[in-house]
């Protein structure tokens, strides 16, 4: 079986216990303004352009049948509207100035990658995490990976935003040791504004999941000007209080690391004026969940 991912990160230490290998699925049903992996949102392969790396070899202009790469007044231009993502230019750009986000990969290929780090993963009581994007948009593919991981004795985790039909959870639930469940905010109007979708299904799914799965961590991105305030956190705390299978709550401070990726994908970054929350604020907000 083949799925679409955009990265495999080894020695991942923030996506569940121990040393882990995290598989980043491509495609998401939310469009959070602060997402630091904008290449995760579209399910399709995408061309990313990093002009500072370009050495001006003109290979891309030569190979592109669509004339999407052109030279104007000595400046190399790329027109995304003309591009059919045939990926020829990226293959011929040795400077890594044109890169394809997204690769189609088999379960076996993923398992081979995971096994490279097997000793590190197992000795540290780590495992594998399916993240994204939204891994449960490709729940059948996810399931196959999880089944093989469990057969191989690996601890498994899924990092989900929860905005998918509950049946998709049922595909994987037996084979998943831990869910990392992302919650952004309880206020639905704000949720729609900042992520593009309602949180109704997300919250319903969490309640349902809590009934049938014993090990859930809640993860909350803390974004200044959006939810980095006591009230927003208090609302979340109230919502999850009755849910007995929530074993941990992790607050993740916003950072800017993804901004250059937005440019590379020709996407406008809407949050350019905010900075990371201070350590003091983070500790105040964390206390709300104690």
């Amino acid at each position: 079986m083949i799925g679409t991912i955009f990265d495999i990160q080894k020695f991942s230490t923030h996506d569940g216990p121990g040393i882990r290998t995290t598989i980043f699925f491509k495609g998401c049903s939310l469009e959070c303004q602060w997402c630091h992996n904008p290449e995760s949102i579209s399910k399709k392969h995408e061309i990313q352009i990093f002009p500072h790396k370009c050495i001006g070899c003109m290979n891309c202009i030569k190979v592109c049948d669509q004339l999407a790469h052109t030279l104007l007044n000595n400046e190399k231009l790329y027109n995304r509207n003309l591009c059919i993502t045939c990926e020829k230019c990226a293959k011929n750009c040795y400077a890594d100035a044109i890169v394809v986000a997204g690769s189609d990969i088999t379960v076996k290929e993923i398992m081979d990658k995971i096994k490279e780090d097997e000793s590190y993963i197992k000795n540290s009581k780590g495992g594998i995490t399916l993240s994204g994007g939204e891994p449960l948009l490709q729940s059948k593919f996810a399931k196959e990976i999880l089944v093989q991981c469990k057969e191989g004795g690996f601890h498994t985790a899924i990092d989900t935003a929860g905005n998918i039909p509950f049946n998709n959870f049922l595909d994987v639930i037996e084979h998943t040791d831990l869910f990392l469940y992302d919650i952004k905010m309880i206020d639905d109007i704000l949720h729609k504004k900042h992520t593009g979708v309602s949180n109704k299904l997300i919250l319903e799914n969490l309640v349902k999941l809590n009934k049938i799965h014993k090990n859930i961590y809640i993860r909350i991105p803390v974004i200044p000007t959006i939810n980095a305030d006591e009230q927003s956190m208090y609302d979340i705390a109230q919502f999850i209080k009755p849910l007995k299978n929530i074993k941990k709550i992790e607050l993740l401070p916003y950072h800017h690391l993804g901004i250059s990726k937005y440019e590379s994908l020709s996407i406008e970054y809407l949050l350019s004026n905010i900075s990371s929350p201070s350590d003091e604020l983070m500790s105040i907000l964390r206390k709300i969940f104690n």
Binding site: F11, S119, S124
Partner: peptide, 17 residues
């Protein structure tokens, strides 16, 4: 503490290999 534990485990595994 988690980070210390992970790096310790990493070192042990490297030596074990």
């Amino acid at each position: 503490e988690k980070g210390i534990e992970l790096v310790s485990s990493f070192i042990e595994t490297f030596c074990d290999m």
